[in-house]
Design a protein around this nucleic acid. Structure first.
Length: 727
DNA sequence: TTAGTATTAATTTTT
DNA sequence: TTAATACTAA
């Protein structure tokens, strides 16, 4: 009897879901339902083969993907999946490390350093251990080289020295690792590396995990790096039930060590590998697919795929040349408003994608000016904000007092009389005594003779230590949220932040947000909270409910889909990025990035570039991206040139419009006044307000509204989603 | 020691 | 344009 799990799947998808045990590689094009195949495969194993959930290991690349996959499997099976190991590589490794800490040079209280921590630590190494000038020898450079080495599983001892610079990197690497161990810390790369070493050096530990990993499933296989590949091989070594899903053309993390040649390695390492191709696309129209294919096919060394869809031709791709980035943003908003007004789509089904985060600002401003809501993915990451990092540092210090990095961050935040001088003295003294900073403080409080400190400095230091010990004394009794509240109280952090400026209030709001996160899970241990904080990115925390266009980098767009996709800034030097221009490998990756962006679109794909753009204040004239010229002209509807761009600048709402897209836009209709002074209105973002003025401007109605809270805003009636309120 | 000002440097993508 | 850092005055 056919299982309902196979309902609605095509032949290739069915084959993948029901494939017999053994190594499998599913090569899937964009929109071919690979996530679906993966989830159905998991459900299939559990339901039809009776595999217990806890003997399945599934790895995704983001926490969000993991969460969604779990929900989908649950929905399919309607049963609980306790024990199903479903998470990212990093989260899985963090978990294993905590459990097996006895085998490692770490305790289970180890901390995970984020990028900022790494930079701080490396800076310290450069200054104190290497005695070099940080200006000439940038910490980021060392870290990049070290990360490269770690991804190749090269240790400091085996680091190849071919130049003087290599020699310096090697020494930096040595010191860096020593300092990490002293801090009881690991960086992102170490997380994977420690587990690989653990497995390789402790056959019995490996055997334990191998035994329970009856089935291993890997999503986004093209984005694995060598260490991850090694882990996958080790873990699946006993049962050899390895199920990998990926698409070479969507490999966009080479800079992070991802090596799409793992796909080739897999074929070599498993001669009995079964390869399944998923070529039917269920997302995009044929026009979009053809254009995307044309772009990606210029890349060398790829397996040609023949993507097809049954969704029909669809509208042409719109190409728009704007005068500058502001005008570009206006085009985006204008077009979205038009499509929404004509009932083609919802705001929430539109997305704007760009190469670099810096490009988001102009777009955001345009949205704000139009009074339209938007959702920003990523950008200034919540956990990278100063105030959040401060508080996390406090928590980490309470958790692991030997975390010198955190200690240095907070010892004088808010200011408590421990300035640069005192900290320097403490640092050199602790170094000389071979102590971490906290242990040095301990000795200071115990022995009044110890250390080269003035009375005032000594008192301040001892007071800080008492503060810290107070929290350490209660940390096991208090939930994380309470602990954080205590820290806020006893440090006077609120007064320190809220300096009366709007920015201060905003920062305090962020703190409250963190407090919410920390209090959310009642009985979460501090350790788990901190591990979670280190491993989440904001990509995971999309505000799902609100129906607003999304702004994101092309990288963040992977795995998502939208009715309408804008790719903005299609200029040489931006996409492809400046730094990729002279390296064919990197250029190929830019091309894949473009491909990923294009294939996110279901119906409408809008490509824009500008005549001139300001980069760091200064203006530059950019040629349009080579990727545009790779699209067959008959698929494109050109909707702008410099002349019309100029005209659009002076007559807002008028100008040349892409016919297919904007025909039904209300602003081109005969305008009539919908609002009058005194009327109450509702705005999705600003809430309730009262109209103070309304006048016709050009072909649109400009409304000034006082919102509750006193803000006066000028809104374009055709863009702002204003609802008149009766009564 | 701190707070404020001046200068300079750096800008890809993220688990 | 912003963020980090250096410098200066109190």
């Amino acid at each position: 009897m056919p299982s309902p799990l196979l309902d609605g799947l095509n032949d290739a998808q069915r084959e993948a879901v029901t494939v017999p045990d053994g190594p499998v590689l599913v090569l899937a094009g964009p929109g071919s339902g690979k996530t679906r195949v993966l989830t159905h495969r998991i459900a299939w194993l559990i339901q039809e083969h009776g595999v217990p959930p806890w003997r399945i290991v599934a790895v995704t690349f983001t926490n969000k993907a993991a969460r969604e996959m779990r929900q989908r499997v649950e929905r399919l099976l309607g049963s609980d999946l306790r024990g199903l190991k479903l998470g990212t590589f990093h989260a899985t490794c963090a978990y294993i490390l905590r459990r097996e800490a006895d085998f490692l040079p770490l305790t289970r209280d180890y901390v995970i350093l984020n990028t900022a921590d790494q930079r701080a630590l490396m800076k310290e190494v450069v200054i104190n251990d290497l005695n070099l000038d940080v200006k000439r020898h940038r910490p980021e450079r060392f870290l990049a080289r070290i990360s490269e080495a770690k991804n190749e599983m090269i240790t400091p001892e085996t680091y190849p020295v071919r130049s003087y610079e290599d020699e310096t990197v090697k020494r930096a690497y040595e010191y860096y690792q020593t300092r990490l161990l002293a801090l009881n810390a690991v960086d992102f790369d170490d997380l994977l590396l420690h587990v690989a070493h653990l497995f390789e050096q402790n056959p019995d530990v490996l055997a334990r995990y191998q035994h329970s990993a009856e089935h291993v499933l890997i999503d986004e296989f093209q984005d694995t790096n060598s260490v991850q590949y090694r882990l996958v091989r080790l873990l699946s070594g006993l049962h050899r039930n390895l199920f990998c899903v990926g698409d070479e053309d969507q490999s966009i993390y080479r800079w992070r060590g991802a090596d799409y040649r793992n796909v080739l390695r897999l074929r070599e390492d498993y001669p009995d590998l079964r390869v399944i191709l998923l070529e039917q696309n269920y997302r995009s129209t044929q026009v979009i697919l053809d254009a995307a294919q044309a772009v990606i096919s210029k890349n060398p060394h790829r397996t040609p795929k023949n993507l097809f869809t049954e969704l029909g031709e669809g509208p042409q791709i719109v190409l728009y040349e704007a005068f500058n980035e502001e005008e570009e943003a206006r085009f985006v908003i204008d077009t979205i408003a038009g499509l929404v007004a004509s009932g083609e789509t919802n705001p929430g089904d539109c997305a704007v994608m760009y190469r670099t985060n810096a490009q988001s600002r102009v777009l955001e401003e345009a949205f704000v000016r139009a009074g339209l809501p938007y959702r920003l993915v990523g950008a200034v990451r919540f956990y990278n904000r100063r105030e959040i990092r401060d508080l996390i540092a406090y928590l980490r210090l309470i958790h692991n007092p030997d975390d010198d990095l955190s200690l240095q961050r907070v010892i004088n935040t808010p200011p408590r009389g421990i300035g640069k001088k005192t900290l320097d003295t403490l640092f050199t003294w602790a170094r000389a005594e071979g102590l971490t900073l906290y242990r040095a403080l301990e000795r200071l409080s115990r022995d009044p003779e110890a250390g080269p400190f003035s009375g005032r400095a000594r008192n301040a230091l001892i007071r800080f230590r008492q503060l810290l010990d107070g929290w350490r004394g209660v940390r096991d009794r208090l939930p994380t949220g309470e602990l954080l509240r205590l820290v806020l109280d006893e440090t006077g952090y609120q007064d320190y932040l809220r300096d009366g400026t709007g920015q201060g209030d905003e920062r305090w709001d962020n703190v409250m947000e963190l407090l919410n996160v920390a209090s959310a899970e009642e009985n979460q241990a501090l350790a788990d909270f901190l591990a979670g904080v280190s491993l989440v990115s904001d990509v995971d925390d999309l505000p799902e409910q609100s129906n607003a266009p999304m702004l994101m980098t092309l990288h963040a767009a992977k795995g998502l889909e939208f009715d309408v996709v804008f790719i903005v800034g299609l200029e040489e030097g931006i996409l492809p990025h400046q730094r990729s221009l002279d390296d064919p490998e990197q250029m190929a990756e830019e091309r894949r990035l473009m491909y990923v962006g294009m294939t996110r679109a279901r119906r409408y794909l809008m490509l824009t570039h500008t005549f001139r753009r300001s980069v760091w204040g200064s203006e530059s004239l950019n040629e349009r991206s080579r990727f545009i010229d790779d699209i067959p002209p008959h698929l494109i509807l050109s909707a702008g040139n410099i002349q019309s761009a100029y005209r659009r600048m002076t007559t807002w709402g008028g100008g040349s419009t892409p016919p297919r897209v904007r025909q039904e836009e209300p602003s081109s209709d005969q305008p009539s006044r919908r609002f009058k002074a005194g009327q109450r209105v509702l705005h999705p973002r600003f809430g309730e307000g009262i109209v103070v003025e309304s006048r016709l401007s050009g072909s649109d109605e400009e409304v000034s509204v006082v919102f509750n809270g006193g803000d006066i805003r000028r809104l374009m009636a055709s863009l702002a989603n204003l609802t008149p309120l009766d009564g």
